[in-house]
Computed example of a mutant assay.
Amino acid sequence: MDTIISIIVPIYNAEKFLASCIDSILSQTFKNFELLLIDDGSQDSSLSICQKYQQNDNRITVFHKNNEGVTAARKYGVEKAKGEYISFVDADDIIPENSLALLYKEHDNADMVIGNFIEVMPHYSKKNKLYSPQVGRFNGIDYISLQLENKLYHAPWGKIIRKNCFNDDIFTTPRDIFRGEDLIMNIKLGLNIKDIKIVNTIVYYYMIRPSSCMQSRKPTLEYEKMFDRFLMLILKRNKLDTKLKKSILSQRIDALTGLLTEKIHLDKNDTFVKMIYSQLKISSFDMRQILLKTCLSHPSIFNILYRVYRKLSSITT
């Protein structure tokens, strides 16, 4: 019988949580899958853990490669996969036992099926957080729009994707793109995908670990401008820059608002900031536009208005 789903787990120094991840996959009620464990040059016992599991289950294949990062590990896994569909799982997360069954049951010949997830916080006093997706049937351009507007999570997990939708370009990003790689990958996927189904069914547990709270490189306006240039190259090359103008503005608003939350001063005379500012419309009644336009003019009141905005957003969602 041909393999239906190839599950790809990129692994780097994940010995603390790896067994829980693999156990959750092997416990799936859906049995027709292969599990590709891609060890990306781990320096702990991750590789030996993978090899022990491989000895006991012939659906598991272990690959060891030099460390090149999670994107390269996913690309390697896709190249080795034999399944009709690809599913990604991070090595420190777990999936419910009916995850694959639920996703495949919903596929209805779609190129991609996207499920819901829960943020699980086992070491924190906060409650687990349930994500609320926009469900329905969408085409590739719709998918790109949802990604740009942050109405659909950027992570590659929590879904099954037809393998023939992948090509080498999907995983190609410049080395200086260290944040937002998943958004870029999803936009490129959207260019190759015709039919997407989004369902409000829990298929993934995103585990908030103490180790996942490490500080990444501090965001800067220069980085956001560089990221925007690369993003626009892709959209312009595919003649989507005009068609997705509203969605592009939404992504740029998120970028500048994110900088303000990090208390980074934004110069209204900067060409990039000035361009975005000129497109903001108070009359639109878009709370994000009102917030950003007001705070670019009066940065000292950002923290107050942002707390109000978050409070109102939690009430309306």
Rank of each mutant, 00 (worst) to 15 (best):
Asp2Cys: 04
Asp2Gly: 06
Ile5Met: 05
Ile5Arg: 08
Ile11Leu: 00
Thr29Glu: 12
Phe30Lys: 01
Ile38Arg: 07
Ile38Asn: 10
Gly41His: 11
Ser46Asp: 12
Asn66Ala: 12
Glu68Pro: 00
Gly69His: 11
Val89Met: 10
Asp92Lys: 03
Ser99His: 05
His107Ala: 04
Tyr124Ala: 09
Tyr124Ile: 02
Ser125Leu: 10
Asn128His: 12
Asn139Glu: 05
Pro156Val: 02
Ile160Asp: 02
Asn164Ile: 08
Phe166His: 03
Asp168Met: 06
Asp169Glu: 12
Thr173Ser: 14
Pro174Glu: 01
Ile177Gln: 06
Asn186His: 04
Ile187Leu: 14
Lys188Gln: 10
Gly190His: 05
Asp195His: 13
Ile198Gly: 06
Asn200Val: 01
Asn200Gly: 00
Val203Thr: 14
Ser212Lys: 13
Met214Phe: 10
Gln215Cys: 00
Leu221Arg: 07
Asp228Pro: 05
Leu231Gly: 09
Thr242Arg: 11
Lys245Arg: 07
Ser247Asp: 06
Ile253Tyr: 03
Ala255His: 12
Leu256Arg: 00
Leu260Ala: 06
Thr261Tyr: 05
Lys263Met: 02
Ile276Lys: 00
Ser278Ile: 08
Gln279Cys: 08
Ile282Asn: 14
Arg288His: 03
Ile304Ser: 14
Tyr306Ile: 00
Val308Pro: 12
Arg310Trp: 05
Arg310Ser: 08
Ser314Tyr: 04
Ile315Gln: 06
Thr317Gly: 08
